[in-house]
């Protein structure tokens, strides 16, 4: 009985070890490709490998990636997490060296399908953050006195999305200050 379970476990773990070794490289590649894709989407054209570092904002560590074009900094892609309606909402926010938001993309989203999850597809909502100058436009939803048009019936998601961006802008100021 003991021997039998032992054999089964041994065989299973060997299979797992083999599969793990075979798939490790493609998994890492897929994860790296995903990050690079998200970075490329939110910052202007660049030719360097993204440099990963972290900045703290109000005691929270935030990862960010610096990208360069011809040696000059082209922009920062900042990972920013806030609480949405259905759990954490993580954005990649691209900020150019002059402090403007270049573009945003969603990394983690657990929002309600058909309502909050529209933050992934609603062009009118997403595009209002393109080339946005936080010095001119007030980064909060109109209901709260800001300049952001919220997604209909998804104020909490819109708030979380907007907060993630304004946190990234604050983090950018810290990066600059360092």
């Amino acid at each position: 009985m003991v021997l039998c379970l032992f054999t089964v476990c041994l065989a299973c773990s060997s299979v797992l070890a083999a599969v793990y070794v075979v798939t490790k490289a493609p998994i890492d590649k897929a994860a790296a490709a995903k990050t690079t894709k998200a970075i490329a989407l939110v910052v202007p054209d660049f030719d360097s490998d993204p440099e990963e570092s972290a900045v703290s904002l109000n005691g929270q560590e935030m990862n960010y990636y610096t990208v360069r074009k011809n040696g000059e900094i082209a922009g920062y892609a900042i990972e920013s997490t806030t609480s949405g309606f259905g759990g954490p909402l993580t954005l990649m926010v691209g900020v150019t060296p002059d402090g403007k938001v270049y573009n945003t993309s969603v990394l983690v989203c657990n929002e309600t399908p058909g309502l909050g999850a529209k933050c992934l597809t609603d062009k009118a909502f997403i595009n209002q953050f393109k080339n946005l100058d936080p010095a001119v436009e007030h980064l909060s939803v109109k209901k709260d006195g800001g300049d952001v048009d919220a997604i209909t019936a998804s104020t909490i998601t819109s708030r979380a999305y907007t907060l993630a961006i304004s946190n990234a802008v604050e983090a950018f100021k810290n990066i600059k200050g360092e």
Partner: peptide, 26 residues
Amino acid sequence: VHIPAYIVIIATFVTVLQFLMQAYTP
């Protein structure tokens, strides 16, 4: 011990599937 043995076998295949999906259909 048939239930533990079966569960170990099933869990192995599920984990294999998980690795494969992570690698090829992320």
